[in-house]
Simulated scan of single mutants.
Amino acid sequence: MTRDTTPLVPADLRRARGAGRNIAGRFETLERVEIGTGWEGDGWDIPEPQAGWRTQVAVEEPRSAITRNASPDVPFDRSLNPYRGCEHGCIYCFARPSHGYLGLSPGLDFETRLVARPGIWRVLDRELRRRSYDVAPLAIGTNTDAYQPIEAKFKAMRKVLEVLRDFRHPVGIVTKGTMVARDLDILGPMAASGLAHVGVTITTLDPALSRAMEPRVPLPARRLALIRQLAEAGVPVRVMVSPVIPGLTDHEIESILQAARDAGARAASWIMLRLPHEVAPLMEDWLHEHVPGRADKVLRRLREMHGGQIYDARFGHRMRGQGVHARMIGRRFDLAAKRLGYDASLPALDCSQFAVPMGTQEQPSLF
C-alpha cells in the first residue's frame, strides 16, 4: 500500500480527534482538499481564522430499527444503532467506512458529523409487535457506540432500553462509554432476569496512549471502575481486549485481563486490529504521527498476519489473522484467561420471556 501524502489537518484544528485527515470515501469520485483564500503572497496576507472540527449532529427518522446480518464471525444475527458516526473518535474503528454510505468521509467526518436517531425506539416498538417477529438477542454497540457523548442530550439508547424492558426482550450491549451506568435502573433488573449483559472494551491501560488513540473515550481507569459498578449491580460483564494492535498494545493482554478480572469481569474476548478500506491509511497516518518509532513494526506485523496485505477480510480470518505472531497472541490470551478463571462466555440470554405489552410508552394500557 502506498501511503497517501496529502497534508494532515493542523493538529490545533483537530484537538481531541482521532483522524488526521478527511479523506474521501471509496464511493466518491472527487477528493476534497483544503485550499487558501487566493490572496496569499500578494501583499494581502490577512490570515482568516479557521474553525476547528466541531461536532455537528443531524437528526434522522429511521424507517427500520433492527439490522440483520448473517456473518459467521459474530454470535448474533440482529443489531440496532441509535447513532451513525461516533464522537469517541477511535482511530482504529472498523466502522469508519460506513460513513461513506452517507456521502461523508470516514476520516474526521465520522467523528464530527454525526446522525442521531432519537425516534428509533418507536420504530423498534412497531417491529417487535409484528406477528412475524422471531425473538433472539439484540446486539447494540457493535458498529458505533450507543453511549457516545451525544447520548447525554438525545437519550436515544435510554428510550430503546425502555422498550426492550417492556417487551422483556434480551439485549447484549458493547460499549466504551461510562454513561451506561446511568441506565442501571433498567439494566440491573433485566440482568437479574437473564435479559441483559454488557461488554466493556479496553484496548490499553496506558492513559496517554488511550487518549491519543481514543480521544473522547473515558480513560482506562474509568472503564475498569465501570466494570466494577456493573458487576456490583448484578450485570454480567465481559471485558473485550479489542483491538489488539501487534507491536503496540499486544504486550498488555495479561495486564488488561488481570485488571478487568479484579474489577469483576466474568468473561473475556479479543479481536485483532482490523483495517478495512479507508481505515488503513487513517491508521497509518496516526502511527507515523503519534508513535513513529513503532509504525513500521506494527505495519510489518499486520502484513505478516494477512498474507502480505494490511488486512484480509475473509470470514474466519479477519478477526484473528494467521501466522506465528497471531497464534502466539491467541495462545497468550487463552492461557491468561484460563489462569484468571474467566468463564468461556457469559450466561445465555433468555428469549422465553418475550411478550408484547398491551400498551405503549405513549399510550399505556388501562388494565
Rank of each mutant, 00 (worst) to 15 (best):
A70R: 15
H88D: 02
A65C: 10
R223A: 14
S79C: 12
G188Q: 11
S345G: 00
W44G: 08
V198G: 00
T2R: 12
F315I: 01
R228G: 11
A280I: 04
M179D: 04
G85K: 09
L340S: 12
R3A: 08
E31M: 01
A156N: 04
C90G: 03
H288E: 10
D73G: 04
R327Y: 00
P357N: 11
L124F: 04
I66N: 01
R78V: 11
S242G: 01
G321K: 10
A136F: 02
H290E: 15
K153D: 10
R182H: 13
G234N: 08
K155E: 13
T203H: 06
G264I: 05
C90W: 07
L219N: 00
M1I: 11
A268Q: 02
G264H: 05
C90K: 07
G307C: 07
P218A: 08
A313S: 14
R21I: 02
W270T: 02
E40P: 06
P72E: 03
A260Q: 03
M240F: 12
A337R: 01
L273H: 02
T204I: 15
I245E: 00
P276G: 03
R113P: 04
Y311M: 01
A313P: 15
Y311W: 13
G85Q: 06
I253D: 11
L226H: 06
A212P: 09
G323V: 11
V239N: 03
R339F: 11
A344R: 13
V279F: 03
K176M: 13
W121R: 01
G103C: 10
I35F: 04
D262M: 14
G341D: 04
G36I: 11
R63Q: 13
V59G: 07
P292C: 05
A192P: 05
R303E: 03
H325A: 04
T360P: 08
G264V: 13
P137M: 01
V241M: 06
I202V: 14
Y342I: 00
L124E: 06
R21H: 08
L80P: 14
L257M: 06
Y83Q: 13
G36N: 11
A116T: 01
L219T: 07
H288Y: 15
L195F: 05
R63H: 12
P215N: 12
L138K: 07
E61A: 15
E304H: 15
D250W: 00
